[in-house]
Design a protein around this nucleic acid. Structure first.
Lengths: 155, 155
DNA sequence: TCAAATATGATGCAATTGCATAGAAAGCAG
DNA sequence: CTGCTTTCTATGCAATTGCATCATATTTGA
């Protein structure tokens, strides 16, 4: 296992910087509009897309890549705001379902009015459609599930 | 200003997820090896690359995209560990220089031994060199300085 | 069937981050 | 000069995150 090439390192640095820059600007717009952060949006959207608007915390975690303990407390806050509701999971009392409420659905919709155009402005505007496609494909290879080609483990 | 296409949204979602996933794994390896986080590394490297190993906090901020107050306190911690030293800025007493110490340089080097191969493993291994180049170029367009093509401002 | 291992979610506590604002030094307009 | 604005860094306090661990429920395997 060896050092990365200049090019690879550069891609990595830009990946992080670009993510930070764009996320920072979008978060700022959401906040300016009086909305909660992207983390809340991610949870709301994840639930909204799920059948019957419900998922277990584990499923949400894996989709949005949050830490278990962070999500647990984020759900506390969201539940306190009435955006989400925890309900028993039939057949396994360790688990639970988290279900989006009407208010939650509504908030998601209202946030999208700010969020969508922001994505257009910070991403869409900078690429031709084919380029965006290319970028998406390349980034898809970095997904946690995607298998690497070379072997070797940490440590 | 309008909604983003599916493709653009997808690129954005993957950008964030990929960054989180890779950063998470790299952070885990660093921690497992007894090292501090990537944020510390970024500051050390930024200083190391600078002439005479020194930069003002503002310069570091802009390079690594940290918040001013976070960097201020990160530097406190790093200074307490002897990795960095604050020295007066000649001709402007508002500013200061942050200078990397020998210990700081050494830590950067030792962290790279873990960090470099991790970049290879999580990024390099997943792309041919030309693809990595492509990815880097596309991501470069998202840099905060890069100008967007369409107009329209938030709000 | 029962103890050990595993899976899921919650929580106490320390560390970090975000927010608003302070404090100090330049820069600027008249 | 003098007062007003801007720039740069620090900080009090609240909110969030990370870490370790707990509590409970299920699964596994002898």
């Amino acid at each position: 296992m060896q050092e990365p090439s200049e090019t690879v390192t550069n891609a990595w640095v830009r990946l992080i910087r670009a993510g930070r820059a764009v996320a920072g600007q979008i978060e700022a717009e959401l906040k300016a509009a009086g909305f909660p952060s992207l983390a809340w949006y991610d949870v709301l959207l994840s639930l909204k897309k799920a059948p019957e608007g419900r998922r277990t915390p584990r499923e949400i975690e894996q989709e949005v890549l949050f830490e278990q303990y962070n999500l647990s407390r984020l759900l506390d806050r969201m539940e306190a705001e009435g955006l989400v509701r925890r309900i028993p999971y039939p057949g396994d009392r360790r688990r639970q379902f988290v279900e989006i409420t009407l208010e939650g659905r509504d908030l998601q919709r209202r946030m999208w009015v700010v969020y969508g155009p922001a994505i257009t402005r910070y991403i869409g505007c900078r690429f031709a459609e084919g380029e965006a496609e290319q970028l998406a494909v390349l980034l898809g290879r970095l997904a946690p599930s995607a298998d690497a080609e070379c072997s070797g483990n940490p440590g």
